[in-house]
Design a binder for these strands. Structure first.
Lengths: 249, 249
DNA sequence: CGTGCCAGGTGCCTT
DNA sequence: AAGGCACTTGGCACG
């Protein structure tokens, strides 16, 4: 049987990391998938269609796609375009395989919210199972990091500023940084690591409104970001708030 | 040469759709990848590390991963967990392959913003090239659809309501629906297809503030959603605004 | 192209 | 679990 001998060959050359199945028989494949789904990433090139129902609802017409199933329950259906999968299911979903009328059926369920995907694979071109690593990513340049840097060096915002609190809670949300300026005024600071848009402005507006209504002293509001959109700047000024260009690194 | 005969075998059985390369020699593979990158989805199982620099910056330690390169320029690096790739590059990025000291180097560049990923593949386990379809997805249950339904049947919000405008522009953003109630009052409606959070309230408050300052008549504000968060409801009421439970379908 | 905003957003963290 | 929010958010529609 060519099917088996090929696998043997592949296992011998690749070790246990990757197994490749060419045009596999769905019935036989299911047994393998059931065994490996909790430990291996399963990658399927197939002619398939898919139905999703949950928070929304969708139909994916029959076509050639790449299906990825991860041991954490993630399901991805990719086509030839876009960073985003056409359909997906997040980690924690429960996947089951079954056979129907020559096709491989893949079902993925999750609860809270209740959502389901059903994929019918009419033709299986290639299936690869692989044990992949995880993690190992370290990221720099987040807003959190920006807050830490400014916290340590408030003069990046202005001379004489002192940071009083980070992630200060208000009924209207969390303030990134709360400070006090050289003249003893309260300073509400909203950070953006990228371009500050108008929603950053209205966050700030609400916070400033809140502190003005509770703190019995002058309150300033500052957006600190490397850039600000034209419209955001306009609204900011209309509310008498300030923008401070802050470029980390 | 086993490498070639295997390919021949695979092409014969799979047709031109999928080509599988087992433990390929990077140098030879590069020629294939260069030819196929504009038409085929390239899937690489490899031991690799990666560096990203752009809006942020990251390092991905050496590990076994799944790399996907799409003809639209998309680059994805997946591991055994999560719906999200560990690293990526969006459509429109420019990919180049090169060889260095036994390794396959993959570089992806984009401009606006300027970002770059460099992947070093130390070991290539399996590489698959496939011509995949695209599109074919139809989605139901979007906010846009919700707006259409309410537009046709405003009594879903309240009796006597008349929709005046959709996507009404204000200096503070776009209002989902603008209506007029039975008593001739202006009604600003903010739609949410899921749970309305405080962010939705912010939006509505701004719009209502704007119309109150310009329209010389009474202005109401309504959030229409299947659900609203506790806090959002609290703030909403504090501003004298309303919530209307609307469940489509 | 920038600006605004929805998304089946996802992921992370806190209550 | 629900809430609040950043994200290399991505994606789209519009001026």
């Amino acid at each position: 049987m060519i099917f088996l001998s090929l696998n043997d060959f592949i296992e011998a050359t690749n070790g246990p990391k990757c197994r490749v199945f060419e045009n596999p028989d769905p019935k036989e494949l299911i047994e393998v998938l059931k065994k490996l789904k909790t430990s291996h990433v399963i990658t399927i090139f197939a002619l398939c269609d898919a139905f999703y129902k949950g928070r929304a609802q969708s139909t994916l017409d029959k076509g050639e796609r790449l299906i990825i199933i991860k041991p954490d329950g993630t399901l991805l259906i990719h086509d030839s375009r876009s960073r985003e999968p056409k359909n997906w299911q997040p980690p924690g979903s429960i996947i089951t395989f079954s056979y129907n009328n020559g096709s491989l059926l893949i079902k993925s369920k999750r609860y809270n919210p209740r959502e389901e995907i059903r994929i019918t694979c009419y033709t299986l071109y290639v299936v690869i199972t692989a044990r992949l690593g995880r993690g190992g990513l370290s990221l720099e340049g987040s807003e959190k990091e920006m807050a830490e840097i400014i916290n340590k060096n408030p003069s990046l915002i202005e001379e004489g500023l002192r940071i009083v609190k980070r992630e200060a809670k208000t009924p209207y949300g969390y303030v990134d940084l709360l400070g006090e300026d050289a003249k003893g005024r309260l300073v509400v600071i909203e950070l953006k690591r990228g371009i500050a848009q108008i929603n950053a402005v209205y966050q700030l507006v609400r916070y400033v409104e809140y502190f003005r209504s509770t703190a019995r002293r002058e309150v300033r509001g500052i957006i600190a970001a490397p850039k600000i959109s034209k419209n955001a700047m306009l609204i900011l000024k209309r509310y008498g708030l300030e923008y401070k260009r802050v470029k980390i690194r």
